[in-house]
Design a binder for these strands. Structure first.
Lengths: 328, 328
DNA sequence: TTGTAGGCGTTATCAC
DNA sequence: GTGATAACGCCTACAA
């Protein structure tokens, strides 16, 4: 491995000058610049990034927290973030928290030990107070999730509006008996807000909700199957279901189909996210602008790192869109 | 930021002793160990990883190449790899090549500049000769893909066997007019082998293939739509289709359904991968043991890094499994 | 069992 | 314009 010293020797110059050329500093003659470049090429020299990191006290690396990368919502988010980061010369370290508080806390060491310049959280398991102390080690940006107490920027969607939009659509189609099938992290404001928006739409339309039409802890296709089973055994069945994800919606649709039900005649279903899956299953869904979320979050992060200023609380709220298909 | 020096001063000891405690070296009295631990806690000290990297000449980080993380096959692979890596104390850097040669080459700098200890390739765009020179900078492991000339370990599946298995299944069901709808990277041995296995199964059964029943460049759901369109316009239509991915199979199934065709009566379809999507659409499919591939590849990599020995060519070939559902 | 000192490869600060 | 020189924070011969 050639070092900067070797290059200097070969070019008959000092390390300083070589370093200047590498980092495109001014005050170097064209002549010497050429000499250095040539020496670098001959030695097949590349700057050692560990040394650079130590010297510059920064890593050009950003950690991204996701629960699981196989969840299409998060893989989409990460895909866009990686592209955006690469464009600006940053790498991404992938941290899968697996919805576990402890995992999430473990990864915080990355920031503390200076392995990354900053953290982007796309989901939050722990209380914000767990993150707070780490702010002194580098910037943190929250996206998708949000927390009232987080003293950092959050890029997110107004989930009240999103579920309101979806529910309103069902109501406009004439349904009055509407089920609600979502995950239900009690701690998560996303869950809370979705429910608020849902109830608000019902309320405005003067529609009643029954306790037995709430189905919780639904995250996956499998959960959708289970929810349909419960739903289909009710005496008084809902005519439509609002769901918290396209997977759940797809699961319900599939189970309904297998049971000989027709969608939307026997049961209308609305998904959330607008994943490719939704198009495939012809599901009406509430689209989240994932690309925009990812880009904005990454931009905020890179700005923060480069400005070397601590970030303050700030909310970037993006709009939803309803994608109408044949499941409603 | 406290350094090892600060801790030493506070504990009234030398840097060496502190370092010994941190790295769990022998020959330190319990007494001093306690002193050091306490000082570390009081100062909220954490070793700086950039300095460690420089000193130890290793990064505890591994780069994983994928075309796109949103492709479920690859996100599954990465999910398992990240878990496995974390278990062994390694981080993962995500490199999306976007199926582009240049992107792929760019990321090679990571190895050269010592930002990662090794590279795992899950897809290969460039000729192996592009990678070869980088072997002197660290280990490379290939998985999923394989190349005859690669002088490193490859963990992969015998794709001839996989497509043979799927095709044989179709033949056993009584279909004699079978279409073939896959991607077709000419350079990729995966494509070539799949085709060999397909033709072999036909050949053994004495079945004829028509040129017009080959549909290439099919990777996505959208491509499945397009393939179905072409297929449905043929005078002599195949009764069954072998596909190279569940997405394509799903696309065909959806398009067929929309056109009023029945699956498998009017057209039988077999997918590849056994993604969640396949279960949802009730697709028969050839399952690839992704977990095993990922784990084996990661283990090979970590062993190579720790042994500090260059890797040699080696093939780990894993078996397929047929998952039978209602699309055939 | 503990401490001293040098160096990993860069870059920033001064002099010249 | 260019070149010494001193850090960045850690680990590890070697010495004591």
């Amino acid at each position: 491995m050639a070092t900067i010293q070797d290059v200097a020797k070969k070019a008959g110059l000092s390390r300083t000058t070589v370093s200047r050329v590498i980092n495109e500093h001014p005050y170097v003659t064209e002549e010497k610049k050429r000499l250095v470049t040539q020496a670098m090429q001959e030695l097949n020299y590349v700057p050692n990034s560990s040394a650079r990191r130590l010297r510059r006290q920064q890593t050009e690396t950003i950690a991204v927290y996701v629960p699981r990368i196989t969840n299409p919502f998060f893989s989409h988010l990460v895909e866009v973030m990686e592209k955006e980061a690469a464009k600006k010369g940053y790498q991404l370290i992938l941290c899968q928290t697996r919805y576990k508080k402890e995992q999430e806390r473990n990864f915080l060491e990355l920031l503390k030990t200076k392995q990354v310049d900053g953290l982007i959280l796309t989901s939050i398991e722990n209380d914000w107070s767990e993150f707070e102390p780490y702010l002194s080690f580098g910037p943190i940006v929250v996206c998708n999730e949000y927390s009232d107490s987080a003293q950092v920027p959050s890029v997110y969607l107004n989930q009240i509006e999103g579920s309101y939009l979806g529910t309103k659509h069902l109501i406009d189609q004439g349904y009055t008996k509407i089920g609600y099938c979502t995950g239900n992290h009690k701690s998560s404001r996303v869950s809370k807000d979705r429910k608020i928006g849902f109830l608000q739409a019902l309320d405005e339309a003067g529609i009643m909700m029954k306790e037995e039409w709430f189905f919780y802890n639904a995250y996956s296709v499998q959960d959708g199957f289970a929810a349909f089973k419960k739903l289909s055994e009710l005496d008084d069945k809902p005519q439509a279901v609002f769901t918290g994800s396209d997977e759940v919606a797809a699961g319900i649709a599939k189970a309904a189909f297998d049971a000989g039900w027709k969608v939307p005649e026997d049961i209308a279903i609305i998904g959330f996210d607008n994943q490719p899956l939704a198009a495939l299953m012809d599901l009406t869904t509430v689209e989240q602008p994932i690309d925009t979320i990812a880009k904005q979050a990454m931009n905020l992060m890179v700005e923060a790192i480069q400005a070397k200023k601590p970030l303050s609380r700030k909310e970037v709220i993006l709009p939803f869109q309803l994608i109408k298909r044949s499941s409603t």
